[in-house]
Design a protein around this nucleic acid. Structure first.
Lengths: 338, 338
DNA sequence: CCATTGTGTTGAATCGTTTCACCATTAAGC
DNA sequence: GCTTAATGGTGAAACGATTCAACACAATGG
């Protein structure tokens, strides 16, 4: 299966390889006649351009590498969507790598994209990747961080203020008269988790008499939420929190499922529940879920914008840092008084 | 920013490019001394391998291209997960393209992956892509179809019997005593939609007195479901169906949201509702949603298996066709009698 | 001491496309 | 008819990693 290449096309069309290339890349500069012959040769041979050779020459590809923590999380799928749309406008394609919150997989994807000489990289990193990203930046790989930023302002970034979001959520719970707050989430090595927790801590600290408990999870999935909810429902009623702030909606929905399954705990009467991200499914939940809304599509969109600016700037580019503000969305899961 | 290449590394280490390549690709054949010098040179220069050059020589990349209709759909994110895991075992990486059900975007991704000379392609195609895929197959691009198959058995495929699934769903609705069935879904150009509808049609045809109405949607999203639900709730009560089979869970959840918002329609008392895919959120919905379950992770997993087999076979490979059976999951949204 | 074997290393050819300086041909201008 | 300009087309030189025949050198055996 010798693959068809430019030379084959050129031979069949009776022209030089240079002309074939011109037909493909500078249609203006080529005569009708040649153009026709070449196109028909391409057609009969079924020629498919070899991107590797093309890139080798060009030095850089027209693909953007996008590395996310979890595509099963609607927050990220919306983000991806925003990024893809913006990229498409610039005739760029987005290649997606899903790490499932695994640092090893993250590293694999970052290195892969670097070796592919992608146009640029969008990453929502786990902490461990930062040194590698710094090294790659020196080699000319532009990277925009999502939901992460560095103190030294070396990277452009677009994020939502997760600390503010966490505070919003827990302030709301406290306002509704809850005092025994539990934070469900983990691992804390994930920036989003620790920041949201930090916001929760702040809120509780300002509120005398309120307590904050941490219920750890191994990841931010429905399954882990179900598990955490199950653990809580096993406790004696007096030992349970009266409000839960889950690090994201998937966890919150899992908790809700577990409570419902147990039949012992009513949301919000026994325990108020608030999530994070305001995914589509939050509003459709058994008990419509209060949440903290992030402009996910806009984040993806903006990240591509920053990347384009950085790549265009070539040299001495001053990284930009954009921070969106989260927004509280109140639904039934936190409304009732108790 | 002249990027560092093998020659630079070789020069610094004081060896030939061949040796550097050996250090990277055949560690056994190289002396301690050279290996050490090369590795430290790589380190100090921050050398990153150029995959384009590498592939150009190798002829094929170690990436699998995966093209899906909608990563926001949990069915597909689970499928992706299954594929990624299996691929990782073979030291292959999955690159993901999301088409949002748009034939143009689908074509872009298929061509891109073809030009990148990916190891193989996994596609859940819209119909229009098939001629292109056939042409690419001739050029040596192995493709496994997901949720699609061709009559001529030219392609390996892994699918779930969507007709059977649709029939399962509607048979269940009929058994529960419903007779005025509505199918919510679209566009019918998507195979999954038309097959599930076909199943529904069959079920209704076998049941004298039952009627089937089609309520079209533009895509398979929560938003479109909400819209369809809204249209239904606007009708006079008598003109409404007494059961809805939605082409997937996203639509069903959207319908549910709309009904709940309107306050006029109770599920399942007024209208029974069943979805398709049994995504995680179905069980956590306002009214736990009946659904038809597909082994999504397994589909992804199996698709990679078939691809590996096909690529390994090199020549005169007999395409395999694997069909999973769907499974009915009954929850509250279809349980109550009326 | 030579032949043989083995171990490491080298350099050039190769992959397929793009680019660009240069050649051919024709058209226009005087 | 000769010069100049314009238009199309050409071919060879990159791009950077891999591979492999060929070579250098040392060790072993006769």
């Amino acid at each position: 299966m010798a693959t068809v290449n430019l030379r084959d096309v050129a031979t069949l069309a009776g022209v030089s390889v240079g002309s074939v290339s011109n037909v493909l890349n500078r249609p203006g500069t080529v005569s009708q006649d040649v153009s026709q012959r070449v196109l028909s040769a391409i057609d009969t041979l079924g020629y498919v351009r070899n991107d590797a050779a093309r890139q080798l020459r060009a030095g850089r590809s027209r693909c953007i590498g996008l590395v996310v923590l979890d595509i099963a999380n609607p927050f990220f799928s919306d983000l991806v969507r925003g990024a893809e749309r913006r990229a498409a406008e610039e005739n760029l394609t987005v290649l997606l790598g899903d790490t499932e919150e695994d640092p090893a997989r993250e590293r694999v994807y970052i290195d892969l994209f670097a070796e592919q000489r992608v146009y640029g990289l969008l990453v929502s990193p786990l902490g461990e990747a930062m040194p590698r990203l710094r090294a790659l930046k020196k080699q000319g790989l532009s990277t925009v961080l999502m939901d992460w930023h560095t103190e030294d302002h070396q990277f452009s970034s677009v994020a939502v203020d997760n600390v503010a979001g966490g505070k919003l959520a827990v302030d709301h719970l406290l306002e509704m008269g809850r005092t025994r707050i539990a934070f469900v989430g983990g691992p804390h090595s994930i920036r989003q988790v620790s920041d949201r927790f930090e916001g929760a801590r702040k809120a509780v600290a300002q509120h005398p008499g309120a307590t904050l408990e941490v219920i750890d999870t191994q990841s931010l999935t429905v399954l882990q939420g179900r598990e955490a909810g199950h653990r809580i429902s096993q406790r004696k009623a007096a030992a349970r929190p009266d409000a839960i702030f889950a690090a994201n909606d998937l966890l919150a929905l899992g908790v809700l499922q577990a409570f419902n399954l147990s039949g012992r705990i009513s949301v919000p009467n026994d325990i108020a529940l608030i999530g994070y991200d305001d995914i589509d499914f939050a509003a459709a939940a058994m008990v419509p879920l209060s949440s903290v809304k992030q402009p996910s599509t806009e984040i993806g969109h903006t990240a591509v914008d920053l990347l384009l600016r950085e790549v265009a700037a070539e040299t001495d580019f001053e990284p930009e840092r954009i921070v969106f503000q989260p927004e509280l969305v109140i639904r039934d899961s936190t409304s009732a008084q108790h």
